[in-house]
Amino acid sequence: MTNALETELKQLIIDTLELEDVTPEDIDPDEPLFVEGLGLDSIDALELGLALQKTYGIKLEADSEETRRHFANLKSLAALVEARRVK
């Protein structure tokens, strides 16, 4: 269920990154997560990588182009989790 996973990831992002005044409805699955759109920064990227590792057992290379693509928006993040989760 992609939608359920997207909702779960929205909540993970809000909780992990302590986004005040942001609700799951505010996160558009097609909008960029970083810089534009939601406006996350590089520390958030590292924090989110850590959360994915803890929650789903997914390990990512911090600097790779592939990670950049996975982190582009919520949809791509959900696709990553669906394909690579081990828990």
Binding site: L17, E18, I43, D44, L46, E47, L50, Q53, K54
Partner: peptide, 9 residues
């Protein structure tokens, strides 16, 4: 456990 980058910062 791995360190939280935001907490470290």
């Amino acid at each position: 456990e791995p360190l939280s980058p935001a907490r470290f910062g």
